[in-house]
Design a protein around this nucleic acid. Structure first.
Lengths: 337, 337
DNA sequence: CTGTTAGCGCCTTCAG
DNA sequence: CTGAAGGCGCTAACAG
């Protein structure tokens, strides 16, 4: 090994390793003159402390793990952006893991993470996750964002899913819709359940009767876009009276939009659609949908901040630190020719 | 520390640490019976080897670093997806760093990475990067993807930028355009230069004269979307004879599309647009643009594979391993009403 | 203010 | 086949 380490610096400076180490950490028990000498040589030799040695010694890695279903989803991409920003400011590093919505991968990832590679975990659970045993035995802090895990007592950062579902549905009713479908991502996810409840309550509050047949339940694991589109088409053909659609997920909103057009139903004249969306291009696309935009960047940043605070102070996370950030309902008109 | 480590296992089994270590690595110099006993207890106690200790000892971290400008860009999101897949298959972990197109951040990130935290680096340089000194002194393998760094002799994974630029321009000329603008991301990036050259050569080959005024040079660092739109508007107003636009970047293609509509120019009747795109939703959006789609996932995966091969064999990377993957030109018709 | 010492948890010779 | 010993690079006591 010819890399520069403390030993090398110490030898060249005729100092002890300990003194060099302290000088580089700006300890107050090293003379300014020595500090200067050490720093000068360190920069001259382009010294970089070995991260693994100090992690091993200090028993903390200055690294957090981010476990999400996928990164090719603008919500998660924005969230990572916020996470990375908060981590960088705190001098932390970010390891990324994708579950692809598969329970097995999630378990295996969490298992790996128990090796002390990270000081804390930020997570959005996979849609296939029902059993939470793998998360229970974690000895490092976890913060859930967006898709939380109600079984685990920790901080969560979410959007106002219930209220958004209610708002979206009320919006459709007030726009004159009477038969409103709900396209759900997954009924096992917290966000799905909450949005569904908001949808149901809004119907009842406005004197409409919820019908189970109008809620398209979540996709079975990795059904794929084709399957989703097929099921939406089937629903719209079975219920030609549908005049409003609340889509819990962006992809479903856009799919519904295309299926409607394919079936010759005009939007928004025949069918009105409200959907969640974080895709930047929707504002460019400008489809005649009303969108609910989640503050994805802030969710990521806030979740990271909470986690980092806990990690730095080596304190467990209080469930009371949970934060709910509000989504924004934006009504769009098509500006298409 | 009450965590389970080799010492703990050794004590409970009345074996030495060395034997336990060997057993867990399936060494052929441990009796099958002992191996079984060790493995049983290891799984019973949920033993996970400390990643930092073994990294320190083995002098490799089983981690690669990914340094990219941003993650909120479908191209990079897809690339990360491919990278993560290749890394996972090889048992590697993925650290992510975002430069936000800023040179200073890129330097600081690379500096951090010299601490041995990663075994190799995958990188797409920031648009602001001109000086490559920080990359020169790296002692670990690097593979560039998409936005390469010609000064550094290593493997690169790119798309056929020159050919794409040529093809796109030729496509417009063959569709009848005579005054074709080129909206460039950055003339200091390899991809920008190559696409620009393809654009110029296609014009000349078809008997048209390139005019410097028709190429909108790259944005000054972080100009922001507003500035971009303003400069596109200014260009289109100054040159009302423009009847074709080749956009080097997706965002610019969509911006151009909207500016044209704002100025009352019909697409594709008055102005035809060809643009790079990896945004999934463009296929949903279905705008009347012709798009060039890059195999982003494959680029990421291929780059990661090359890097991992070098890292695992502890061999330097041969520049000859570079790979060029082909983009696909897809012509779209608007299906809007 | 500086040096000596003792590990963090793991792997790898070298002995038996 | 198994055990003992040393050290990866760094930090944190404890001495002087």
């Amino acid at each position: 090994m010819q890399s520069v380490n403390l030993k090398r610096l110490a030898e060249e400076l005729h100092l002890s390793i300990a003194t060099v180490s302290r000088a580089l950490q700006d300890s107050h028990e090293v003379s300014p003159a020595t500090k200067e000498r050490v720093r000068a040589l360190a920069t001259a030799l382009d010294y970089q402390p070995n991260a693994y040695a100090s992690s091993l010694r200090r028993n903390q890695s200055k690294t957090i793990g981010v476990v999400i279903p996928k990164v090719t989803n603008h919500f998660f991409a924005l969230a990572i952006n916020g996470i990375e920003e908060a981590a960088r400011q705190a001098g932390f590093h970010v390891l990324i893991y994708l579950t692809h919505e598969e329970y097995e991968r999630e378990v295996s990832i969490i298992q790996h993470l128990k090796g002390g590679r990270v000081d804390g975990i930020l997570m959005s659970v996979a849609s296939g996750t029902e059993n939470t045993e793998h998360l229970r035995s974690l000895r490092i802090p976890v913060v859930f964002f967006d898709r939380i895990c109600p079984d685990i007592s920790t901080a969560n950062v979410t959007t106002n899913d219930y209220e958004s579902g209610y708002q979206a549905t009320a919006h459709l009713i007030e726009a004159g819709c009477r038969t409103i479908a709900h396209l759900l991502l997954s009924s096992s996810l917290s966000i799905g359940r909450n949005r569904q409840q908001g949808y149901l309550d809004a119907l009842v509050a406005h004197g409409l009767t919820p019908s189970p047949g109008l809620t398209l339940p979540g996709t079975p694991a990795n059904d794929g876009p084709a399957g989703q589109v097929g099921r939406i088409r089937e629903l719209l053909q079975r219920r030609p009276d549908i005049d409003g659609i609340f889509a819990s997920v962006e992809r479903l909103a856009v799919s519904a939009y295309h299926v409607c057009r394919e079936l010759g139903r005009r939007i928004p004249e025949d069918v009105k659609i409200v959907g969640f969306s974080n895709l930047e291009s929707v504002s460019l696309f400008d489809p005649p949908l009303t969108t609910i935009t989640q503050p994805a960047y802030d969710i990521g940043r806030e979740a990271a901040k909470i986690l980092l605070r806990a990690v730095e102070k080596k304190r467990p996370i209080l469930p009371t630190q949970s934060v709910v950030l509000a989504s924004e309902l934006v009504q769009r008109r098509s500006t298409m020719p």
